[in-house]
Amino acid sequence: MGSVRTNRYSIVSSEEDGMKLATMAVANGFGNGKSKVHTRQQCRSRFVKKDGHCNVQFINVGEKGQRYLADIFTTCVDIRWRWMLVIFCLAFVLSWLFFGCVFWLIALLHGDLDTDYKDDDDKSKVSKACVSEVNSFTAAFLFSIETQTTIGYGFRCVTDECPIAVFMVVFQSIVGCIIDAFIIGAVMAKMAKPKKRNETLVFSHNAVIAMRDGKLCLMWRVGNLRKSHLVEAHVRAQLLKSRITSEGEYIPLDQIDINVGFDSGIDRIFLVSPITIVHEIDEDSPLYDLSKQDIDNADFEIVVILEGMVEATAMTTQCRSSYLANEILWGHRYEPVLFEEKHYYKVDYSRFHKTYEVPNTPLCSARDLAEKKYILSNANSFCYENEVALTSKEEEEDSENGVPESTSTDSPPGIDLHNQASVPLEPRPLRRESEIGSRR
């Protein structure tokens, strides 16, 4: 089982795998120059863009038009607004034209077009017409509009002379109601789609790998820009990579689940303020055997998904993003964004995407760390350097704002901070800030 798991979770494809794949392509008759073999020097295209759209195009789909027309309502909801407006206008105009032609044909076959009612006051002739005051196609078209929109100006009306005319008036009224219901329903469904809710759900630009509770963890940050909550919010993550099976089958995008606390339930989050999602790199993680150097040379993509129900409509929305291997910062942490004021908490989104480097973060893999092949620094050293990194950030910001350097908390000259780390230190809580992250 261990060997199978290692093969499945191998992220960085070796040169031997690339040569094996190329040999397979030639042997199977696919070596026509169009096949692409992804190596370390040639990274694959992003499968999920940063804005959440999937970078996929469908080609050679059989009976595409028929399949889309069979699900016309979903098609109308998914198309762009400009095409929705075109369909909206065409549906009414074509129905008016169709029934206008029908009423014109009825008048033509009944002989109503030969009668001039402007110079004739004989009401008996008017009563013999199928539709009064309809003696041309324009008049028939206007009567069709008046019937379907129930305008009723009063000059044109159907008589009991022709039952077919009466039937067409009733039929057009029913068709008009159906068109109204369909168009209004599609427009309302399109307006109520929770897709735009994703514009106020954000992911951090970069993911980070750092120590948390004595273990290497992959972390990324999510935030909600609205005050309205995302009900039943939960997160998922998958690692996408290519691999070759033991039988020699090439899988271009193998999807591997990344555990973010599904078993323990901590994948469900209360997204009021930005939260750091934590994936513990343990023996079940696809990143277990990867060191910093392996991450730098790897070719994979981590897709992160945030799902929840919109509070206003109770409709489920899904926000997506992805991180390539070069977008994962090893040995970094996110800057705090949640600050405790006197009577409330304040979230500073200008710090949302910012990170700071944490010294002495192990550069080895989580496996080597678990097997004690890498000796961690003293816990006080880690905490102290973590505090120094934050303090230096604040000093830089104070210097930019014009604060005198004498007010900063610099260490005395001639003292090495790293050498001082081995000395037991008193706890130094942050002056006014605390970061709330997901705790395992």
Rank of each mutant, 00 (worst) to 15 (best):
S3A: 09
R5N: 11
T6M: 06
N7C: 06
Y9A: 15
Y9L: 13
S10H: 04
S13F: 03
E15Q: 10
G18K: 04
G18Y: 06
M19G: 10
K20Q: 12
L21Q: 09
M24Y: 08
A25V: 05
V26Y: 09
F30R: 15
F30Y: 11
F30H: 15
G31E: 05
K36E: 10
V37Y: 06
H38A: 12
T39N: 12
Q42R: 10
C43K: 12
S45Q: 14
S45V: 05
K50E: 07
D51T: 09
G52K: 02
H53W: 06
N55W: 00
V56N: 08
Q57S: 12
F58N: 15
N60P: 10
N60E: 12
N60I: 03
V61D: 15
G62T: 10
R67P: 05
I72F: 11
T74K: 07
C76G: 14
V77R: 09
V77K: 13
R80W: 03
R80K: 13
L85W: 06
I87T: 15
F88L: 07
C89T: 07
S95T: 15
S95C: 15
F98E: 00
G100F: 00
C101Y: 03
F103Y: 08
W104A: 06
W104C: 14
L105G: 11
L105T: 05
I106F: 01
A107N: 05
L108E: 14
L108A: 11
H110M: 01
G111N: 12
G111F: 02
D114H: 09
D116W: 13
K118E: 00
D120T: 00
K125S: 14
V126I: 13
S127T: 13
S127I: 15
K128G: 13
K128W: 03
A129P: 05
A129T: 05
A129W: 04
V131H: 02
S132W: 02
N135G: 13
S136M: 00
A140F: 03
F141N: 03
L142C: 06
E146T: 03
T150Q: 05
T150W: 04
I151F: 04
I151K: 08
G154V: 02
R156T: 02
R156H: 02
C157L: 11
C157T: 10
V158A: 04
D160H: 02
D160T: 07
D160M: 03
E161Q: 14
E161R: 05
P163T: 06
A165N: 01
F167M: 10
M168F: 07
V169N: 02
V169E: 02
V170C: 04
Q172F: 01
Q172C: 06
C177Q: 10
F182Y: 12
F182S: 05
K190Q: 09
A192L: 15
K193A: 08
K193L: 10
P194R: 04
K196T: 07
R197P: 07
T200V: 06
L201Y: 05
F203D: 00
S204T: 08
A207M: 06
A207S: 07
R212N: 14
L216C: 00
C217R: 08
L218E: 01
M219K: 01
G223Y: 05
L225E: 08
R226P: 10
K227S: 07
H229F: 10
V231R: 09
A237K: 00
Q238L: 07
Q238K: 09
L239Y: 10
K241T: 05
R243T: 13
I244Y: 13
S246F: 05
E247I: 04
P252K: 15
D254P: 08
Q255V: 12
I256W: 12
D257R: 05
I258S: 02
G261Q: 06
G261E: 10
F262E: 04
D263V: 10
S264E: 13
S264W: 14
I266C: 09
I266G: 13
I266P: 11
I266V: 12
D267A: 05
V272E: 10
S273P: 07
I275P: 04
T276A: 08
T276S: 11
T276G: 05
I281L: 06
E283F: 03
L287A: 00
L287I: 04
L290V: 02
D294Y: 01
D294C: 05
N297A: 12
N297Q: 11
D299A: 07
D299E: 12
G308W: 04
M309F: 14
M309N: 10
V310R: 10
E311R: 04
M315L: 09
T317C: 14
C319W: 13
L324A: 14
I328A: 00
W330F: 01
H332A: 09
H332Q: 12
R333P: 00
Y334W: 07
Y334E: 00
L338W: 06
E340R: 05
Y345K: 13
Y345P: 08
V347E: 06
D348K: 01
K354C: 09
T355M: 04
E357I: 06
E357K: 04
V358S: 08
P359G: 11
P362R: 01
D368I: 09
L369M: 08
L369G: 00
K372M: 12
K372I: 03
I375T: 14
S377V: 08
S377Y: 04
S377T: 11
N380G: 08
N380E: 13
S381M: 05
S381I: 05
E387G: 02
E387C: 03
V388G: 15
V388W: 10
T391W: 07
K393I: 06
E394W: 03
E395W: 03
E395S: 09
E396G: 13
E397K: 07
S399N: 10
E400D: 10
E405M: 07
S406N: 11
T407I: 11
T409I: 04
D410M: 11
D410Y: 03
S411H: 06
S411V: 12
P412C: 13
N419Y: 10
A421E: 14
L425D: 15
L425E: 13
L425N: 12
R428V: 15
R431T: 13
